[in-house]
């Protein structure tokens, strides 16, 4: 599984960070920052869930 984050679309809701903090972070300006773009098996399901929760469709699975 590979995750992509489009920082231009991100609106800083923090939904992804709440859902899977092992994969998603926010920089000081509140914009999404990926901690890894290859979530391990343990994080995969939650990372997938975060993609569906993102309100600005900034996250996608490649």
């Amino acid at each position: 599984m590979r995750i992509k984050a489009d920082t231009r679309l991100c609106v800083g809701s923090g939904q992804c960070v709440l859902t899977e903090p092992a994969v998603f972070d926010q920089d000081d300006d509140g914009i999404v920052a990926l901690l890894t773009d290859h979530p391990d098996d343990q994080s995969a399901a939650q990372a997938h869930h975060a993609v569906t929760l993102c309100p600005s469709r900034a996250l996608s699975i490649l």
Partner: peptide, 10 residues
């Protein structure tokens, strides 16, 4: 919105 979202990060 962008200038303010850094104030509301988790």
């Amino acid at each position: 919105r962008r200038p303010v979202i850094g104030e509301f990060t988790v």
